[in-house]
Simulated assay, not measured.
Amino acid sequence: MQPTAALLVPLLLIATAALAQHPQLPVGPNADLGGVLLMPAGDQWNRDVSKDPVDPRSDAIIARIGAQTRLHEDFGLTWKGAPGGIPYYVVSGDQPKVPVAFRYADESDPGPYPIPPDVPIEGGPQGNGDRHVIVLDKDNWRLYEMFHAFPIDGGKSWRASSGAIFDLKDLKPRPAGWTSADAAGLPILPGLARYDELCVTKQLTHALRFTVKKSRRAYVSPASHFASKDNDPDLPPMGMRVRLKADFDTSKFSGPARVLLEGLKTYGMILADNGSDWFISGAPDDRWMHDELTPIRQVKGSDFEVVKMGPMTMR
Protein backbone atom coordinates (compact mmCIF):
# COMPACT_ATOMS: atom_id res chain seq x y z
CA MET A 1 0.00 0.00 0.00
CA GLN A 2 1.35 3.44 -0.92
CA PRO A 3 1.56 6.02 1.90
CA THR A 4 -0.99 8.80 1.75
CA ALA A 5 0.03 12.40 1.32
CA ALA A 6 -0.81 12.99 4.99
CA LEU A 7 1.78 10.39 5.97
CA LEU A 8 4.55 11.52 3.63
CA VAL A 9 5.74 14.46 5.74
CA PRO A 10 6.04 12.46 9.00
CA LEU A 11 7.83 9.66 7.13
CA LEU A 12 10.25 12.12 5.59
CA LEU A 13 10.92 13.67 8.98
CA ILE A 14 11.63 10.25 10.48
CA ALA A 15 13.96 9.39 7.59
CA THR A 16 15.75 12.71 7.94
CA ALA A 17 16.18 12.16 11.67
CA ALA A 18 17.59 8.68 11.07
CA LEU A 19 20.10 10.05 8.59
CA ALA A 20 21.07 12.78 11.03
CA GLN A 21 21.84 10.11 13.62
CA HIS A 22 24.09 8.20 11.20
CA PRO A 23 25.92 10.78 9.10
CA GLN A 24 28.30 9.64 6.37
CA LEU A 25 31.41 10.94 8.03
CA PRO A 26 35.00 10.30 6.97
CA VAL A 27 37.11 8.10 9.21
CA GLY A 28 40.47 8.96 10.74
CA PRO A 29 42.09 11.15 13.39
CA ASN A 30 40.24 14.44 13.95
CA ALA A 31 38.10 13.74 10.86
CA ASP A 32 35.91 16.64 9.76
CA LEU A 33 32.47 16.25 11.34
CA GLY A 34 30.82 18.61 8.86
CA GLY A 35 29.04 20.64 11.52
CA VAL A 36 27.01 17.64 12.67
CA LEU A 37 25.24 17.95 16.03
CA LEU A 38 26.51 15.04 18.09
CA MET A 39 23.91 14.99 20.83
CA PRO A 40 20.16 14.28 20.54
CA ALA A 41 18.18 17.42 19.74
CA GLY A 42 16.63 17.62 23.19
CA ASP A 43 19.84 17.11 25.14
CA GLN A 44 21.00 19.63 27.74
CA TRP A 45 24.12 20.48 25.70
CA ASN A 46 21.89 21.80 22.91
CA ARG A 47 19.51 23.80 25.09
CA ASP A 48 19.07 27.53 24.50
CA VAL A 49 19.68 29.12 27.90
CA SER A 50 19.65 32.74 26.79
CA LYS A 51 16.34 33.41 28.58
CA ASP A 52 16.99 31.35 31.72
CA PRO A 53 17.10 33.25 35.03
CA VAL A 54 20.43 34.09 36.64
CA ASP A 55 21.47 32.05 39.65
CA PRO A 56 21.24 33.96 42.96
CA ARG A 57 24.89 33.16 43.72
CA SER A 58 26.13 34.20 40.28
CA ASP A 59 28.18 37.24 41.34
CA ALA A 60 29.87 35.40 44.22
CA ILE A 61 30.75 32.38 42.08
CA ILE A 62 32.07 34.49 39.18
CA ALA A 63 34.20 36.47 41.63
CA ARG A 64 35.54 33.25 43.17
CA ILE A 65 36.61 31.92 39.76
CA GLY A 66 38.05 35.29 38.76
CA ALA A 67 36.01 38.29 37.60
CA GLN A 68 39.08 39.89 36.02
CA THR A 69 40.56 36.63 34.72
CA ARG A 70 40.26 36.36 30.96
CA LEU A 71 38.77 33.72 28.72
CA HIS A 72 41.33 31.48 27.06
CA GLU A 73 41.25 29.06 24.12
CA ASP A 74 42.80 25.70 25.03
CA PHE A 75 43.09 24.60 21.40
CA GLY A 76 44.23 25.80 18.01
CA LEU A 77 47.96 25.89 18.72
CA THR A 78 50.89 23.52 19.27
CA TRP A 79 51.82 22.90 22.90
CA LYS A 80 55.01 21.04 23.90
CA GLY A 81 55.27 19.53 20.46
CA ALA A 82 51.70 18.21 20.36
CA PRO A 83 48.56 19.77 18.85
CA GLY A 84 46.71 21.77 21.47
CA GLY A 85 43.26 20.54 22.33
CA ILE A 86 41.60 17.16 22.90
CA PRO A 87 41.88 14.91 19.82
CA TYR A 88 39.40 12.29 18.63
CA TYR A 89 39.22 9.52 16.03
CA VAL A 90 36.23 8.61 13.84
CA VAL A 91 35.93 4.88 13.09
CA SER A 92 33.55 2.61 11.19
CA GLY A 93 31.31 0.13 12.94
CA ASP A 94 33.65 -2.71 11.98
CA GLN A 95 36.68 -1.27 13.80
CA PRO A 96 38.17 -4.13 15.88
CA LYS A 97 37.71 -3.72 19.61
CA VAL A 98 40.47 -4.19 22.16
CA PRO A 99 40.34 -4.86 25.92
CA VAL A 100 40.79 -2.01 28.40
CA ALA A 101 41.71 -2.35 32.08
CA PHE A 102 40.38 0.53 34.21
CA ARG A 103 41.79 1.73 37.50
CA TYR A 104 38.32 2.94 38.53
CA ALA A 105 36.47 -0.01 37.08
CA ASP A 106 33.50 0.46 39.43
CA GLU A 107 32.66 3.78 37.69
CA SER A 108 33.75 2.85 34.16
CA ASP A 109 31.95 1.17 31.28
CA PRO A 110 33.81 -2.09 30.59
CA GLY A 111 35.52 -2.76 27.28
CA PRO A 112 36.34 -3.74 24.72
CA TYR A 113 36.64 -0.35 22.96
CA PRO A 114 37.17 0.18 19.18
CA ILE A 115 40.56 1.88 19.47
CA PRO A 116 42.75 2.08 16.33
CA PRO A 117 46.49 1.51 16.83
CA ASP A 118 47.25 5.07 15.63
CA VAL A 119 44.64 6.82 17.78
CA PRO A 120 45.86 10.27 18.93
CA ILE A 121 46.39 10.74 22.66
CA GLU A 122 45.87 14.15 24.23
CA GLY A 123 49.29 15.65 24.82
CA GLY A 124 50.98 13.18 22.48
CA PRO A 125 52.27 9.63 23.07
CA GLN A 126 54.71 10.83 25.73
CA GLY A 127 52.31 13.28 27.36
CA ASN A 128 51.94 13.20 31.14
CA GLY A 129 48.67 15.13 31.44
CA ASP A 130 45.08 13.94 31.12
CA ARG A 131 45.88 11.71 28.11
CA HIS A 132 42.27 11.58 26.90
CA VAL A 133 41.49 9.15 24.10
CA ILE A 134 38.20 9.67 22.23
CA VAL A 135 36.72 7.42 19.54
CA LEU A 136 33.46 8.08 17.67
CA ASP A 137 31.82 5.07 15.98
CA LYS A 138 30.04 6.78 13.11
CA ASP A 139 27.95 3.77 12.08
CA ASN A 140 26.56 2.83 15.49
CA TRP A 141 26.68 6.46 16.67
CA ARG A 142 28.47 5.56 19.87
CA LEU A 143 31.13 7.53 21.67
CA TYR A 144 34.01 5.87 23.54
CA GLU A 145 36.13 8.05 25.84
CA MET A 146 39.04 7.25 28.17
CA PHE A 147 40.99 9.26 30.73
CA HIS A 148 44.72 8.82 31.40
CA ALA A 149 44.98 6.11 28.77
CA PHE A 150 48.10 4.11 27.86
CA PRO A 151 48.52 1.55 25.06
CA ILE A 152 49.95 -1.87 25.85
CA ASP A 153 51.87 -3.92 23.30
CA GLY A 154 51.35 -1.40 20.53
CA GLY A 155 47.67 -0.89 21.28
CA LYS A 156 46.60 -4.55 21.40
CA SER A 157 45.14 -3.61 24.77
CA TRP A 158 44.95 -0.48 26.93
CA ARG A 159 44.98 0.63 30.52
CA ALA A 160 43.24 3.78 31.69
CA SER A 161 42.03 5.45 34.85
CA SER A 162 38.40 5.65 33.72
CA GLY A 163 36.23 5.29 30.64
CA ALA A 164 32.70 5.79 29.41
CA ILE A 165 30.55 4.71 26.47
CA PHE A 166 27.71 6.98 25.30
CA ASP A 167 24.91 5.98 22.93
CA LEU A 168 24.44 9.26 21.07
CA LYS A 169 21.11 8.11 19.62
CA ASP A 170 19.58 7.69 23.06
CA LEU A 171 21.82 9.43 25.55
CA LYS A 172 21.33 8.60 29.21
CA PRO A 173 23.06 10.31 32.15
CA ARG A 174 25.75 8.47 34.04
CA PRO A 175 24.66 6.82 37.29
CA ALA A 176 24.70 9.28 40.18
CA GLY A 177 28.20 9.60 41.59
CA TRP A 178 29.92 8.10 38.54
CA THR A 179 32.71 9.81 36.69
CA SER A 180 33.38 9.34 32.97
CA ALA A 181 36.54 10.27 31.09
CA ASP A 182 35.80 13.73 32.50
CA ALA A 183 35.59 14.79 36.13
CA ALA A 184 31.94 15.84 35.84
CA GLY A 185 30.80 12.51 34.38
CA LEU A 186 29.96 14.17 31.07
CA PRO A 187 30.89 13.25 27.48
CA ILE A 188 33.82 15.31 26.21
CA LEU A 189 33.56 15.39 22.41
CA PRO A 190 30.12 17.09 22.26
CA GLY A 191 31.46 20.01 24.31
CA LEU A 192 34.56 20.73 22.24
CA ALA A 193 34.89 23.75 19.97
CA ARG A 194 35.44 22.39 16.44
CA TYR A 195 36.79 23.97 13.27
CA ASP A 196 33.91 22.66 11.14
CA GLU A 197 31.48 24.63 13.32
CA LEU A 198 33.34 27.86 14.02
CA CYS A 199 34.94 28.27 10.59
CA VAL A 200 32.88 26.29 8.04
CA THR A 201 29.20 26.27 9.04
CA LYS A 202 29.94 29.34 11.21
CA GLN A 203 27.38 28.27 13.76
CA LEU A 204 27.88 27.07 17.31
CA THR A 205 24.69 25.30 18.38
CA HIS A 206 25.69 23.68 21.66
CA ALA A 207 27.37 24.48 24.95
CA LEU A 208 31.14 24.25 25.26
CA ARG A 209 33.29 22.53 27.88
CA PHE A 210 35.33 24.70 30.25
CA THR A 211 37.55 24.29 33.31
CA VAL A 212 38.38 26.08 36.57
CA LYS A 213 41.25 25.67 39.03
CA LYS A 214 39.04 25.06 42.05
CA SER A 215 35.59 23.52 42.04
CA ARG A 216 33.12 22.62 44.77
CA ARG A 217 32.48 19.18 46.25
CA ALA A 218 29.12 19.14 44.49
CA TYR A 219 27.50 18.71 41.11
CA VAL A 220 24.33 19.80 39.30
CA SER A 221 22.62 18.39 36.23
CA PRO A 222 23.79 17.39 33.67
CA ALA A 223 26.88 16.34 35.68
CA SER A 224 26.98 13.18 37.79
CA HIS A 225 30.29 13.55 39.66
CA PHE A 226 32.42 16.08 41.54
CA ALA A 227 36.21 16.29 41.89
CA SER A 228 36.89 18.39 44.97
CA LYS A 229 37.12 18.21 48.77
CA ASP A 230 36.11 21.86 49.26
CA ASN A 231 32.57 22.74 50.36
CA ASP A 232 32.94 26.51 49.88
CA PRO A 233 29.50 27.62 48.55
CA ASP A 234 31.16 30.26 46.36
CA LEU A 235 33.07 27.61 44.41
CA PRO A 236 31.43 26.33 41.22
CA PRO A 237 29.95 22.81 41.21
CA MET A 238 30.56 20.47 38.30
CA GLY A 239 27.85 20.80 35.66
CA MET A 240 27.35 24.52 36.36
CA ARG A 241 26.58 26.50 33.23
CA VAL A 242 27.61 30.08 32.55
CA ARG A 243 26.61 32.25 29.61
CA LEU A 244 28.01 35.42 28.10
CA LYS A 245 25.84 38.35 29.14
CA ALA A 246 23.28 39.43 26.56
CA ASP A 247 24.59 43.01 26.49
CA PHE A 248 28.18 42.01 25.76
CA ASP A 249 29.15 43.68 22.46
CA THR A 250 30.36 41.04 19.99
CA SER A 251 30.33 43.41 17.00
CA LYS A 252 34.03 44.20 17.45
CA PHE A 253 34.90 40.53 16.95
CA SER A 254 35.04 38.61 13.68
CA GLY A 255 35.58 35.14 12.30
CA PRO A 256 35.58 32.12 14.62
CA ALA A 257 36.01 34.31 17.71
CA ARG A 258 32.68 36.00 17.05
CA VAL A 259 30.94 32.70 16.22
CA LEU A 260 32.17 31.25 19.50
CA LEU A 261 31.11 34.26 21.58
CA GLU A 262 27.66 34.43 19.99
CA GLY A 263 27.25 30.75 20.81
CA LEU A 264 28.18 31.42 24.42
CA LYS A 265 25.33 33.92 24.66
CA THR A 266 22.82 31.30 23.57
CA TYR A 267 24.16 27.96 24.86
CA GLY A 268 26.83 28.96 27.35
CA MET A 269 29.53 26.64 28.61
CA ILE A 270 29.42 23.84 31.16
CA LEU A 271 31.98 23.20 33.89
CA ALA A 272 33.39 19.75 33.19
CA ASP A 273 36.80 19.47 34.83
CA ASN A 274 39.45 21.06 37.03
CA GLY A 275 42.15 22.92 35.12
CA SER A 276 42.97 26.53 34.37
CA ASP A 277 40.32 29.18 35.04
CA TRP A 278 38.05 30.06 32.11
CA PHE A 279 39.83 27.73 29.65
CA ILE A 280 37.59 26.58 26.79
CA SER A 281 38.27 23.13 25.34
CA GLY A 282 38.46 22.43 21.63
CA ALA A 283 39.59 19.81 19.14
CA PRO A 284 42.83 19.96 17.16
CA ASP A 285 42.58 20.78 13.46
CA ASP A 286 45.37 21.61 11.02
CA ARG A 287 43.20 24.40 9.61
CA TRP A 288 43.01 26.49 12.79
CA MET A 289 44.53 29.96 12.48
CA HIS A 290 45.43 30.66 16.08
CA ASP A 291 45.44 34.43 15.65
CA GLU A 292 41.74 34.25 14.76
CA LEU A 293 40.97 32.71 18.16
CA THR A 294 43.04 34.85 20.52
CA PRO A 295 40.65 37.86 20.48
CA ILE A 296 38.40 35.93 22.89
CA ARG A 297 41.05 36.72 25.52
CA GLN A 298 39.51 40.20 25.70
CA VAL A 299 36.53 38.64 27.48
CA LYS A 300 36.68 38.63 31.30
CA GLY A 301 34.96 36.50 33.91
CA SER A 302 32.76 39.46 34.82
CA ASP A 303 31.28 39.30 31.30
CA PHE A 304 29.61 36.00 32.26
CA GLU A 305 26.75 35.09 34.55
CA VAL A 306 25.77 31.76 36.09
CA VAL A 307 22.60 30.25 34.68
CA LYS A 308 20.22 29.30 37.50
CA MET A 309 21.16 25.88 38.77
CA GLY A 310 18.82 23.04 39.66
CA PRO A 311 19.11 20.74 42.68
CA MET A 312 22.71 20.27 43.85
CA THR A 313 24.20 16.97 44.96
CA MET A 314 26.74 17.22 47.79
CA ARG A 315 28.42 14.31 49.53
Rank of each mutant, 00 (worst) to 15 (best):
S50T: 00
Q298P: 10
V259Q: 01
E73P: 15
P190Y: 01
F147N: 14
D167E: 05
K229A: 15
M289L: 14
A101T: 15
D94C: 00
G255T: 12
L11Y: 03
K138S: 10
P256M: 10
A105N: 08
H132V: 06
K51H: 15
G28M: 07
A176Y: 10
K172T: 12
M1C: 13
P114M: 09
G111L: 04
A227L: 11
D247W: 01
T250K: 03
I270C: 04
D234R: 09
P236D: 06
D130C: 04
G177T: 03
Q95E: 15
G81K: 04
G76L: 12
I65H: 05
D139A: 08
F279E: 12
H72V: 13
E145D: 10
A6I: 02
N274Q: 03
S251Y: 00
Y195A: 08
S108K: 10
I65Q: 06
P87S: 08
R258K: 14
L271K: 00
G129L: 04
N30Y: 07
W288F: 09
A183G: 13
P116M: 07
A183F: 01
V133H: 06
F279M: 12
G28F: 01
P284F: 07
P295K: 05
S162G: 11
P53I: 09
S224Y: 06
A63R: 11
D182V: 11
I115C: 02
F226T: 02
R216L: 01
L186P: 09
M238T: 02
R142D: 00
L198S: 06
Y104A: 12
V135A: 09
A257H: 08
L8E: 15
A227H: 15
W45I: 14
N274W: 01
L189C: 04
R47I: 13
T294G: 10
H206F: 07
L8I: 14
D43M: 01
L204F: 02
G127C: 04
D52E: 14
T4L: 15
D247F: 02
L261H: 08
W288S: 08
G177K: 10
G28P: 11
D48F: 02
F253C: 00
P173V: 12
D232E: 11
R159M: 07
